[in-house]
Design a binder for these strands. Structure first.
Length: 589
RNA sequence: CGGGGCGUGGCUCAGCUUGGUAGAGCGUUCGGUUCGGGACCGAAAGGUCGCAAGUUCAAAUCUUGUCGCCCCGACCA
């Protein structure tokens, strides 16, 4: 492709609307332009990257037994009403009416659509397993779209839905997808991790997320270097510390004037935060309940939400004061049952001895408080937010923390949708059973942003070779070198390499700046200095390495570079993989 | 939806407090000089100041409404 005939409207200045690196760079590199909030046009450079990713995804889905379909984006309300999600989805669903006033939505996801399709077509266990997938636009009217295509209202997603006859089948489908996902992100040239995840609103018990590691990622990942454990911090657990074997001391009231927060109390009394019991009050529709965690722990809202299974929020201090007559900052678990407050506690509370907590009296705390002797708990659960330094739940080694962008999420759904939509099959006994489903999503357009988020510097994007819009950029210093540049261009094209030739009548500096910005992995500078020695000057964008290749070897050198930087296969040539079976691996570049 | 902020040439922004001829830099076009990391000189084009109503002799500027966008919170691929 010749630059002068192409369409890459780069921006010299940073658009004011962009916050994070990938958003700024996609705008500056002429990849996207906003149409309205969270809705973007993808320009040629971005479109090429999308196609690269889609190709990898399709190959791996097909290889894992997937069969591609294209489903309606405009979906009728009835199927959503049958699963109850017409109401559950709420404002996040783009809704529309046709001329007959019938309700439709723009598909935010396709469980309903695919299940209602399959239910009419699949009748026998002989037709299973079935793994159908689609890659298309999805629509979610996000409350707050942000970060460019990272969280958009219109976005491209791949979804595969598996239909099996039993749990063993589901497990095989899940495992096949797990492996395919590892393969996909490896082949994209991204550093990523598969982590255990909360299954959220979609339901199901087992779930993994695939995270592209990036400091700017919204998700926090806890992982163990010793074993394979890795989890989203929404889900992560840690091994429990051993119980304190201490003689129980008599309870003691201490005056702590104006010391309401954990740091204040621990400083004032010279004790570690781990010795405090923090008491927080939450409100649901019908009750107020207390949640106890250790002073150095935070409550994990996801875990609490899963346990309560109903809407809840932190009770405002005025509520606590008026309804329970308790002074916020000095509350403790003693005597709460008498106030008809249900008490939940994190598991770590069990192991504490001679703790400190509020005295339920302004400006007073209690020392040497002990479970059972002094207060009771209605139920224990893992309610704390795990953090770096906690012990791995499998092997007790300290957990490490990193951040990531969620680009894939796989779920075991079970029969949630097949039951409500009555998608059944007959087994060998002729018995009618609901299909066992799984669903497996990849945010295709989000991968583009995540890849940039992971690979950029001050000058621009550094594309991993497998998903770069072009593999090679040829940059003639001036018009004088254009003929030689075209020779190299033809040679590379003939070898099947994707090349962008910057034939614009621009100053060298401008071309260098644009080259860095759009981030094509191999830059070949054709200038008088190199040509005098029958060489091109090579700059590798990812590492910044400078090389010289002789004109006669350019093509073979490029091919060698691309092969070396195509994990898992190049040009359809798929290499064997070396991932572990339980799959939780960290890819190193 | 709650809180905060912003809408002025294609882009980044000044001007608004204190109403009176709409500005700069970048980009674009033309001419010239340059030409290996976003050149320089000269000339030019380009703006319903988001939109609507109001106050006023006069509104980018003041008031009200409205639309859009961005940031912080709950959501998620």
């Amino acid at each position: 492709m010749k630059y002068s005939q192409y369409f890459i409207p780069t921006l010299r200045e940073i658009p004011a609307e962009a916050e994070i690196a990938s958003h700024k760079l996609m705008l500056r590199a002429g990849m996207i332009r906003k149409s309205s909030a969270g809705i973007y046009s993808f320009l040629p450079l971005a479109h090429r990257v999308l196609k690269k990713i889609i190709k990898i995804v399709e190959e791996e889905m097909d290889r894992a037994g997937g069969v591609q379909v294209l489903l309606p984006m405009v979906q009728p309300a009835e199927i959503w009403q049958q699963t109850g999600r017409w109401d559950v989805y709420g404002e996040e669903m783009f809704r529309l009416k046709d001329r007959h006033q019938r309700d439709f939505c723009l598909g935010p996801t396709h469980e309903e659509m695919i299940t209602s399709l399959v239910k009419n077509e699949v009748r026998s266990y002989r037709e299973l397993p079935l793994r159908l997938y689609q890659i298309q636009n999805k629509y979610r009217d996000e409350i707050r779209p942000r970060f460019g295509v990272m969280r958009a209202r219109e976005f491209i997603m791949k979804d595969l839905y598996s239909f099996d006859r039993d749990n063993d089948g589901l497990n095989r489908s899940y495992q096949a997808m797990f492996e395919a996902y590892n393969q996909i992100f490896t082949r994209c040239g991204l550093e990523f991790r598969a982590v255990e995840a909360d299954s959220g609103a979609i339901g199901g018990d087992v779930s993994h997320e695939f995270m592209v590691l990036a400091d700017s990622g919204e998700a926090v990942i806890l992982y163990c270097e010793e074993c394979s454990y890795a989890a989203n911090n929404e889900k992560a657990t840690a091994a429990l510390p051993s119980s304190m074997e201490e003689p129980l001391l008599p309870i003691e009231k201490v005056h702590t004037p104006g010391q309401a927060t954990v740091p204040e109390v621990t400083t004032y009394l010279s004790v570690p935060p781990s010795q405090l019991i923090k008491t927080l009050f939450y409100q649901t529709d019908d009750e107020i309940l207390a949640v106890l965690v250790r002073g150095d722990d935070e409550i994990n809202d996801i875990k609490l939400g899963n346990l309560l299974n109903k809407p809840y929020r932190l009770a405002p201090p005025e509520e606590i004061a008026s309804k329970l007559d308790l002074p916020v900052g000095y509350v403790g678990p003693l005597g709460l049952q008498e106030k008809r407050v249900k008490v939940l506690a994190d598991l770590r509370i069990k192991a504490m001895a001679n703790s400190i907590c509020g005295a339920n009296l302004k400006d007073y705390h209690l020392r040497n408080v002990n479970l059972e002797r002094d207060f009771r708990v209605d139920s224990f659960a893992d309610l704390r937010l795990a953090k770096a330094g906690d012990q791995c739940p499998h092997c007790q080694h300290p957990l490490l923390e990193t951040r990531g962008v969620e680009v894939g999420h796989i779920f075991k759904l079970g029969t949630k949708y097949s039951s409500s939509l009555r998608a059944t099959f007959r087994d060998e006994q002729g018995e009618e059973k609901p299909l066992i489903m799984g669903c497996y999503g990849i945010g295709i357009s989000r991968i583009v942003a995540a890849a940039i988020e992971q690979n950029n510097d001050q000058d621009g994007i550094k594309w991993p070779a497998p998903i770069a819009p072009f593999q090679v950029l040829i940059l003639p210093i001036s018009k004088e070198q254009l003929p030689q540049a075209e020779e190299i261009y033809k040679g590379l094209i003939a070898a099947g390499v994707e090349v962008l030739l910057d034939d614009r009548d621009e100053r060298a500096g401008v071309k260098f700046k644009d080259a860095d910005l759009i981030g094509i992995p191999v830059r070949l500078t054709v200038g008088p200095k190199g040509l005098a020695k029958e060489e091109v000057e090579v700059k590798l964008r990812m590492t910044g390495e400078d090389l010289r290749w002789s004109l006669s070897e350019v093509t073979s050198q490029v091919l060698a570079y691309l092969k070396a930087h195509s994990p898992g296969g190049v040009l359809n040539e798929i290499m064997p993989t070396n991932q572990s079976q339980d799959g939780v691996i960290l890819e190193k570049k």
